[in-house]
Design a protein around this nucleic acid. Structure first.
Length: 623
RNA sequence: GCGGGUGUAGCUCAAUUGGAUAGAGCACCUGACUACGGAUCAGGAGGUUAUAGGUUCGACUCCUAUCACCCGUGCCA
């Protein structure tokens, strides 16, 4: 189905000014950029052309003279108020003010089902790595950002018509998991634990104990040997860790049984997996993050692929032996010029997480057909990711057979969540905050707000509102800042009545919905649906111009992997609407004015709802 | 040591990728409509963009040093 393209003033002006440039200065390349931007100061104009300054040097004329030439040559009379010498400011900026009829036509042309975002062609297959929980470990604050950011990016790609495959890369394999499994078997056999009733907290405790038993003293022993503290000290250490060594041996034995899928051991592992994943999926569900069991691909699912894959790397000379370990060198420009090689097999023959991650690249490209893989992962993993990207390319695993190109692999790195003291977010006692507790407290605080504001609403109604309001507030607070920076977490600020918050955006939407609810009550028909969008008053114009920026904003999120651009945009849009709401009464206006404004309200509602959905923020109808 | 990141108003953060007088929100001060729901709107004050140089018509942005903090750095994941 063909749809008329949006008459976006920015792109229209860009092509018109390009024509003017080419007509005036024929030597310019055909794709010259006229540098049309939204005007920095609204009182000067709606848009501005910044090309004259840089052009001046190219053509050897003063910038203001170049600007004058462009003003004379630009055929834009149907779009903008007449351009004169007064339109030229400073060193050669050309200020442009849109005609309201052109703006109305543009805004009206945006009001289609797609909102100016036609499905991308060709559609890409994009894998988004958006979570990495570990079995038997309680989810905490550190697990908040990856799914929120990753899901927002995934939704952005989906909105643009790409095929998205979400991946939850679960840490469900290896010696640490075997240690917990061994510990659980031991507890269960001693009658100290009922496997049928085990909780994630139980698992977490078992994990810590097992970890401590197996590793603490072994590290000490290792140090004795390495620093040559002598046979006596070593013997003392050995005596001390005898018990631990025993556990360690048991864990290794358990790992072997797991790898062989020995039924009794494997069954315990399955219990650990189910308990962990149930909590994980429940958290995602509550966060309105689209991650379910079908998106989970644990490290265990790659276990059988590792040995053949590493053999492949070795036989083709991609990897080489060095000091006993098998490594992939990456110190050439095509693989990232990384000094540190990527280890894929330890001296003892064991594999590392890099090995699994390279196998994941292979599956994602070769099996899923990924054109692009986006990792929403903590910034501290940057070196590791650059290594596996390089190794994946060097091995040829990243080469997409359909396109003949390497999949684009990107690290959407994010910083840490800090407390209000500027240090990593912890409870007062220094414990990490359980994710489930964090979500619960968010909703509890939101509930208090909602109840005090809506004393007449029922408890149940308030609860639903508080749930959505709280989750939107929490997610917005995470998404609104530049991803890569650390951010300071504050319940008070994210749930605040005022300011750049999720609640502010939801409130703007509620106000629009109220207008239509009230209109329906007053028996206003749907006569507004056919009229052009009204863009006469300043507030109306500003709102319309803001609406028209929507498609480009969403696309820029997909390109830059920066959801905060959409957040800032929506905040700006909501602000434009609030000003309009204050200055331009809709339902009190008469027929044609009212209808033109109703249509403007309706388009605002659609863009706001669409944008919130792209970010993954649930909305409310009242609050 | 080497590598990466960050440094912007009292606080929390932006800045359309080199454009005009560096913008918002909070907090502070002033004002508005007995409200199409005030979780609103309008205005004021608040800055040597860590520091010093450089590139050019023009720099928060690019280059070179320096400082501060965070992180990562071959056999954990």
């Amino acid at each position: 189905m063909h749809q008329a393209p949006v008459q976006d003033p920015l792109s229209l002006l860009t092509s018109r000014f390009r024509e003017a440039m080419l007509a005036s200065f024929p030597d310019l390349p055909a794709d010259i950029d006229p540098l049309i931007k939204a005007c920095a100061q609204a009182d000067l104009g709606d848009f501005q052309c910044n090309a004259a300054m840089s052009l001046a040097k190219r053509v050897g004329k003063p910038p203001r003279e170049v600007a004058k030439t462009l003003v004379a040559a630009a055929k834009v009379g149907d779009l903008v108020e007449p351009l004169t010498e007064a339109s030229i400011a400073g060193p050669g900026f050309i200020n442009i003010r849109l005609r309201s009829d052109a703006l109305s036509a543009a805004a009206t042309s945006l009001d289609t089902p797609s909102l100016g975002l036609e499905p991308a062609s060709p559609a890409q297959t994009v894998v988004v790595d958006l979570m990495g929980v570990n079995l038997a470990k309680q989810m905490h604050v550190g697990h908040l950002r990856s799914p929120i950011i990753g899901d927002a990016l995934a939704r952005t790609f989906e909105r643009l018509g790409h095929t998205v495959i979400r991946q939850n890369h679960v840490g469900d394999w290896g010696l640490p998991i075997a240690m917990v499994t061994a510990r659980l078997i031991e507890l269960s056999q001693a009658g100290r634990l009922d496997l049928a009733k085990v909780t994630l907290d139980d698992l977490d405790a078992a994990y810590r104990t097992a970890q401590a038993e197996c590793q603490r003293d072994l590290a000490g022993l290792e140090a004795c040997r390495r620093f040559g503290l002598g046979p006596k000290a070593t013997a003392e250490c050995e005596a001390q860790v005898e018990g631990a060594t025993e556990k360690f041996v048991a864990a290794r034995a358990t790992l072997v049984k797991l790898q062989a899928k020995e039924p009794a051991t494997y069954a315990v592992w399955k219990v650990i997996q189910k308990v962990t994943m149930d909590v994980c999926i429940a958290a995602c569900r509550r966060l309105h993050v689209n991650v379910t069991d079908e998106h989970s691909a644990g490290e265990s699912s790659y276990a059988d692929e590792l040995a053949p894959m590493v053999a492949d790397l070795e036989s083709r000379g991609i990897a080489e032996l060095d000091q006993g370990a098998l490594i992939v060198r990456l110190d050439t420009p095509e693989y990232g010029s990384i000094k540190e090689p990527c280890l894929v097999r330890k001296t003892d023959g064991g594999y590392l997480y890099a090995t699994t991650d390279i196998a994941a690249i292979r599956r994602r490209v070769q099996q899923f057909g990924a054109d692009r893989i986006v990792y929403a992962i903590d910034a501290r993993q940057n070196l590791h990711l650059r290594q596996i990207f390089g190794a994946g390319r060097k091995a040829g695993y990243a080469r997409n057979k359909r396109t003949g190109l390497d999949a684009v692999m990107e690290h959407a790195a994010f910083g840490s969540v800090l407390g209000e003291d500027g240090r990593p977010f912890k409870t007062r006692s220094g414990e990490s905050v359980k994710l489930a507790d964090l979500l619960e407290e968010t909703v509890t605080r939101a509930m208090a707000q909602v109840r005090s504001r809506n004393p007449e609403s029922s408890e149940a109604e308030c609860r639903v509102i508080a749930e959505n309001l709280g989750m939107s507030a929490l997610k917005y607070a995470d998404l609104v800042n530049d991803r890569v920076r650390d951010y300071v977490f504050s319940f008070d600020r994210m749930l605040a009545f005022e300011g750049n918050t999720g609640p502010y955006l939801l409130y703007a939407l509620v106000r629009i919905l109220n207008i239509f609810r009230k209109a329906a009550e007053a028996g206003v028909g749907e006569t507004w649906k056919g009229v052009p969008i009204r863009c006469e008053d300043a507030a109306e114009k500003n709102l319309a111009i803001a609406l028209l920026r929507y498609p480009a904003t969403v696309r820029s999120v997909a390109d830059s992997l920066e959801p905060h651009r959409l957040c800032q945009y929506l905040f700006d849009l909501a602000g434009c609407f609030s000003t309009f709401y204050d200055q331009c009464p809709t339902l009190k206006a008469d027929g044609p004015v009212r209808d033109g404004r109703l249509r403007l309200c309706h388009l605002t509602r659609r863009v706001l709802e669409d944008g919130l959905k792209v970010l993954g923020l649930p909305t409310v109808e009242r609050m």
